[in-house]
Design a binder for these strands. Structure first.
Lengths: 365, 365
DNA sequence: CTGAAAGCGCTTACAG
DNA sequence: CTGAAAGCGCTTACAG
């Protein structure tokens, strides 16, 4: 059943059917009614494909995630979908599997499907490079692009004077002009975590860092900033693989040391934090009585471990919604890169407590 | 850049461009080359929208999930996406929020976007009813439709003779003809769990059931079947709200009872199982030394609780992939409802162990 | 207020 | 092997 069926039944031309159904002002109320009834009766459903071809807009966006079946990106996707649905926009969904080549292929599919725009979450590689190769004017919004930083730079940021370290990281942040970027405020995450601990009276606070990526570096820098603000010297900083096991190993190293043992640990993310808690358990160190641990991200099971993990939650849904708003509300001034920084919020659970009596370090001696 | 641009540059008609690019056999190798080079040079990307309008196939399917940002359905979605991507099919993604009306709306969008088929995961309500109202021939495959059963029936199945109970549930199972249905084999899940425990020597095994839904009922019936096979009488069966807290309450009830305390519990799902473990901890009952607990689903954090949970994992990705295969490989004999039952697999972790010495019940006396 | 016509970018019989 | 033509189902100036 097409528009001409409706036209025939209601004794008007197809053009009038379009106008009537779209609420075009200059249509006789009576003919509008006739058309609507005919459409209703026939169960007419305008063909979006034909509409898209005629108008040039598909009312569809492409969403590229780095991995699905993951709660974190799943929720970002949920935010995208929800905001899109409210506006009558559909979302084409694809998984880049963290692989730049794969990502490019999916982008190509999106391009051919003539999406209105594409949202790329946690783009692999350097988006401005592979996007440029596609030769397209398609609006792109990046979510949480996390650039790799080289190992040297990473090491330097751990010890370099704070201001200089921050300055050098900041220059890396932009994924290039022309692309809007919505990022989680990683530096603020690190600050929130450290500040929470210093407010609890901790003075020896260690940091477990992850891969040499901007986000890890920024959280570390935020951590350093908060401590400096509290006139505290940062405790030991260790790097590890981003897994439960990595966190466990790192914490073991931190907690076994004979010199002043930290009374608190900030981990780059929740997985590392949970690993650290396991390490503490294994050494007979109680959490939070002897050691406080704070993670970052508030992944799904952060609330389910023992003890439930204090962490910094990211506004995942919000960031997804924002991306859609950016696409459909923003003046398309593509020369100026848009950049939005979204702050996380501290979620206090049971893995943190006031500093143990006597400063806590003694307990380890 | 359209097909006519390519045609002009390569000195052929648009029709020939189509043929050349599609690998149509009857094209002079030389002209094919010319066309390909022109396309390449211009960065020509055939417009899928136009193709869809001309051919009638969009190479796109619609996927409706009950909630996104959930690992379980996220993984089913990942399976769908992966299998689709391998076939060059795109997936339009929408969230029904478990609301039948909402679901219908999204289906309508899919219909207008002329998807080749739609996959509905965990459909809310009675799919054959609301699907019928859409007056469409669109192929539909349902994944894991879980029908509500009325409370009486639910109660009856706990006590009725096994064979009869099974028979009565089975009649409810089909979501109607015309719709393919891929389901997790819930009865087998329950059997696997119970069988694992009886093999460990447990004889007093309780069951914590969830909402009055088919899946809960079937797992219970599977549980009963396995016990009967092992010549064991089922332990107490309690029902509760499907949450951590619900599981905790139910277990409290089970474990506090002065009469013979169960040495093992099968819970309808992992959440309930984890709640049950918390209850045991609170009562000073050790898991798995004094009490074995097995869950079902293998949700993300099942491996992260203390102790890591023994559970029955569902083939989530597989089920997603299967749905796509059904759509693109199946002979479309729409009169015969296709129904696939996918079995889960037991994942043994640390919440189960051999029955405590002396039968265990004594421990509670 | 309404209609006839052209067009969106492709594909596919039908000829040759 | 290749081209001209018609068609997919809508929309939108352009007339009237």
């Amino acid at each position: 059943v097409t528009i001409v069926d409706v036209a025939r039944i209601s004794n008007v031309s197809p053009a009038t059917v379009t106008r009537a159904l779209q609420g075009h002002p200059r249509v006789l109320p009576e003919t509008r009614l006739r058309v609507e009834q005919a459409a209703q009766k026939l169960g007419y459903r305008p063909d979006s494909i034909a509409q898209a071809l005629a108008t040039g807009a598909t009312n569809t966006i492409g969403l590229l995630v780095p991995s699905s079946g993951d709660t974190f990106w799943g929720e970002v996707a949920a935010g995208v979908e929800a905001e899109a649905a409210e506006r009558g926009i559909s979302v084409l969904f694809a998984n880049g599997h963290g692989d730049p080549e794969r990502q490019r292929q999916m982008l190509d599919v999106f391009l051919r499907k003539r999406v209105d725009a594409v949202i790329v979450a946690a783009a692999a590689g350097r988006p401005h490079e592979w996007l440029a190769r596609e030769r397209t004017e398609l609006p792109v919004v990046l979510i949480a692009w996390d650039a790799a930083v080289d190992a040297e730079e990473f090491a330097r940021a751990q010890t370099a004077p704070l201001e200089r370290a921050i300055a050098s990281v900041t220059t890396l942040e932009l994924p290039g002009p022309h692309y809007a970027h919505i990022a989680f405020d990683a530096m603020d995450d690190g600050s929130l975590a450290a500040q929470h601990l210093s407010a609890l009276g901790h003075e020896r606070i260690a940091f477990i860092a992850g891969k040499p990526q901007q986000s890890s570096l920024l959280r570390l820098l935020g951590f350093r900033t908060a401590l400096e603000r509290a006139s505290l010297r940062p405790g030991p900083i260790v790097t590890c693989e981003e897994s439960l096991e990595g966190g466990r190993q790192a914490a073991l190293e931190l907690l076994r040391s004979h010199s002043a043992r930290p009374t608190a640990i900030v981990a780059y993310n929740d997985l590392l934090a949970i690993g650290a808690i396991r390490a503490a358990h294994a050494l007979g160190i109680r959490v939070p009585e002897d050691l406080s641990v704070v993670g970052c991200d508030d992944i799904d099971f952060a609330a389910f471990v023992e003890p439930p993990l204090t962490t910094v939650a990211q506004p995942r849904q919000k960031v997804g919604r924002l991306a859609i708003r950016l696409i459909y509300e923003q003046e398309p001034d593509r020369e100026k890169a848009v950049r939005l920084l979204e702050a996380g919020t501290l979620v206090v659970r049971e893995s943190t407590a006031s500093v143990p009596k006597g400063g806590g370090a003694e307990a380890g001696r």
